[in-house]
Amino acid sequence: MENVLVSNKVTKRFGGLEALGRVEIEVRKGAIQSIIGPNGAGKTTFFNCVTGFYTPEEGEILLNGRNITGLSPDRVTRLGVARTYQNIRLFKNMTAVENILVGMHPHLKSWLFGAIFRDPRTMREEQTALAEARRMLEFVGLKGRGDMLATNLPYGEQRRLEIARALASRPHLLLLDEPTAGMNPSETQEMVHFIRRLRDELGITILIIEHQMRVVMSISEKITVLDFGQKISEGTPAEIQKDERVIEAYLGRGAASGLGEARAQG
């Protein structure tokens, strides 16, 4: 099967610290995959390298076979990668619809002239964009919330709005940075269900950073484990759960019992 994303020996250093060391991750088309690891393992750094926020010192990142290493974030977005952030970063003082419209930015064209004169082409473009934004709102379950300022939405809805904004750029690959952080069990369950819908209904490949083992184990087809910037294990949830090295050396005792629970449930 073809790979949407391939990272080839990606290394990122901050001063003397090696945040990522020759990391190799392959994301298959249409998959839901996860990256796990303790705090400071380099997970978000990896996301930042993929999306163009950081330029890795060594190695290369291929998107659909095309080298995107070192491209600026706006270029990467236009090539079909979208992301959400660990601590929600919405445009707080804009409405939900406006947030989504900003997400559509690469697909719209009007600029100064269109803004002032409102020529028919601009008006059509805006109408289409607005209709699409409304559909997007409905898809993520925020119908009727579109005119609220993002900052006034409850936490769970802000998470979903952020995903809607990412979807608005029509990505092939969606990077979700801890999508269930700060959620209670029922909200988490809803989010897991929602992520599956993204893949099944929109056909988007999804790469997730996640801390909640229950979520990771139930949703992922493949899991990559990072620790101190090194890939220490990779495989299906079942393989990761059995991997003594992951459990002992990295996940620790508490998490290991959590795994037991997940296993009992699964």
């Binding site: 974030p73 919405l90 445009f91 900003v102």
Partner: peptide, 13 residues
């Protein structure tokens, strides 16, 4: 968008 969060705005293309 640029006013609210420049990094994210740039990442939006």
């Amino acid at each position: 968008a640029l006013r609210e969060d420049e990094d994210v705005a740039v990442a939006m293309g």
